[in-house]
Amino acid sequence: MKSLILKDLYNIGHNVRSLVISMIFCAGILFFTTGGEGFVYMSTIIFTMMILTTFAFDENCKWNHYAMTMPVSKKDIVVSKYAVMIIFTATGAVVGLLVGAVFAAASKSAEMNTENMLEMLTNAAAAFLIGIVFGSMEIPLVFRFGTEKSRLLMFVSFLVPAALFFGIYKLLVTAGVEFTDDLFLRILCFSPLFAVVWVYVMFKISCAVFERREI
């Protein structure tokens, strides 16, 4: 499985230059609009989306067909894609955090104090969780529909979890649950657990989809 991860990292390594250019461009826009906070989310999502690019590279050279002749299983291929997606998302969050810190330090309006730092760390963690929830939904879509159709279906990966969480929120409000700051904090503390369960379910779906698919 290490070979599959290494292959994706080498493949995407070639795109680093264009990635840096687009990040600088976005950073420039966000610096004057939302500040460092927005950049953390944008950076994380851009990095997460690179998993689609690795699938596109694989499709172009019929990699999966060849990989099945190596001592790896279909499950190994799925595991490697999730591992690479998590690596990308974590890298995006860290890059966003670092650039955001530079934003904050350079900006006259923001002071670099402990509270600000904590807020930025929370944003980076939240961006990471959103990234892996989105990315883990994207992977079974690509295994099922291929890269091209999945690009079109990408909004589904955003909409489904968002609609699901909004639906639960509305249901709880209707049931009379009051969303206080304390409750929000508790939900925030539980969000990593939600993310883990979500990723696990999506991983299982990906395995089932890919197992049935003829390469």
């Binding site: 070979s3 599959l4 290494l6 001592p71």
Partner: peptide, 21 residues
């Protein structure tokens, strides 16, 4: 046809295969 992405080099392909086999 070769099934490695076109931007890889034979050296990198060797490193990938070394992890696979």
């Amino acid at each position: 046809e070769i099934n490695f992405h076109e931007t890889l080099t034979p050296e990198k392909v060797g490193k990938i295969c070394a992890k696979a086999y």
